[in-house]
Design a protein around this nucleic acid. Structure first.
Lengths: 221, 221
DNA sequence: GCATCACCGTGACTTGGTCACAGACCCTCC
DNA sequence: GGAGGGTCTGTGACCAAGTCACGGTGATGC
């Protein structure tokens, strides 16, 4: 990919006036972030507005007691609008953002971001839409944590996080962090799923055996 | 209050250039919203950007099964930025916003909102800060639902929602919706608090007897 | 008065979270 | 290859919270 055409990756940016798009491409730089990079976190803030071209970033909340819960993931074609917003004002940020699979991202300086917001209704729409989607998802997350059964949520995660061969390389502890619960609880639930022939577990890995059954469980409520 | 000076209510707007402030005041109208008004909800969207001068708006998520959970409250001096953002793009909105205590608000048409965003860095900062604060709070809410004990969360709510005389006119069901739990659970928790002399309950009301003790409980973790 | 409805109390049971500890697996270094 | 240490998983006992079913009780209206 040349640095001249990355705007193509973002449907919301395709309608930008050509001169503005050119200006944006010039003022930005494409960076590669290795897996494990902590993009932001308590006491650590990004200096740029980030647009993800490739890879995923996991955003998780860490509680005082050390427990974790995954809030959402940012994937290719999406922006880290939230983190930027946090830069722009209030910055008491407890959550952290970690690169999960090696990422390629476009970094836009704050000044350029500001100018784009000022000059382009399309860019504004792009940014605000990203906000809306994120917040709507957070609302759904809250609802699920509060009201959904854990086996159903776990089934959903297994389906969402496994690759196309039904493989998933995560420990029970990591899955517990996904759902904001305890490791033992995940172990028990996985054990029951295995007993019912839906999955097969091994150290640090889960394999889906009966996708249909798992899917039924995931859609129970 | 005259319609000429409402910008004074919003610290973030005081730095607006005078001519822009004048323009804003002219293009807006001050509306009164009686308690119980549903400002937005599934299948119902606000046509204006709203700034709250007086009163409070409760934003809650309603699940398919009819259960409710209060997500946050918008109070005087704050904006409903989120709802507007949702207007601007993605609008699959499951949550609803309900006027809790009679509200006075400034309604700004979408076009004017857009122009302000375009022309004023101060206004942008105002809007983005509102976003950040909201999202940070949602993160904290998720953490509390996932990891905090219910008695602690209930104690916090009682303190936050009671008036200065320690009175609170809410049913157990309403308190349960605040916390995203079941009515019976709240009843039991309140009963235990009463047994310990922290509160006194009557039909549809709670009175705080020992604020210090309740405060201790609220700050346990 | 008494019928009705919203609100509250309670017991039995299920699900989920906590704690303590025991194995099992894996890697590295002799 | 075997010893040792770290990570990961399994399990039982117990506690906290959510669900279900039902009964009681206070307010309100006719």
């Amino acid at each position: 990919m040349t640095s001249a055409d990355w705007t193509e990756y973002f449907p919301g940016l395709r309608t930008l006036p050509p001169d503005l798009a050119r200006q944006l491409v010039q003022a930005s730089r494409v960076v590669t972030l290795p897996a494990g990079t902590r993009i932001f976190g308590p006491g650590q803030a990004p200096e740029n507005y980030l647009l993800l071209i490739k890879g995923t970033v996991r955003v998780q909340q860490v509680s005082d007691s050390g427990r974790e819960i995954v809030l959402y993931r940012v994937s290719a074609g999406e922006s880290c609008a939230l983190t930027t917003a946090c830069l722009m004002g209030y910055e008491e940020y407890q959550a952290e953002g970690i690169v999960e699979t090696e990422a390629t991202a476009v970094a836009i300086a704050r000044s350029m971001f500001d100018e784009l917001i000022a000059s382009s209704a399309e860019f504004r729409k792009f940014v605000f839409t990203a906000f809306s989607v994120r917040i709507t998802n957070l609302f759904r997350t809250i609802e699920e944590i509060a009201f959904s059964r854990l086996d159903i949520r776990l089934a959903q995660r297994l389906l969402a996080l496994s690759d196309d061969r039904g493989q998933l390389a995560m420990t029970h502890q990591q899955l517990a962090s996904e759902l904001g619960t305890a490791r033992e609880v995940v172990s028990r639930q996985l054990h029951e799923m295995q007993r019912r022939g839906m999955i097969e577990t091994s150290r640090g890995a889960v394999r889906i055996l009966d996708r249909a059954a798992l899917d039924d469980l995931a859609h129970l409520a």
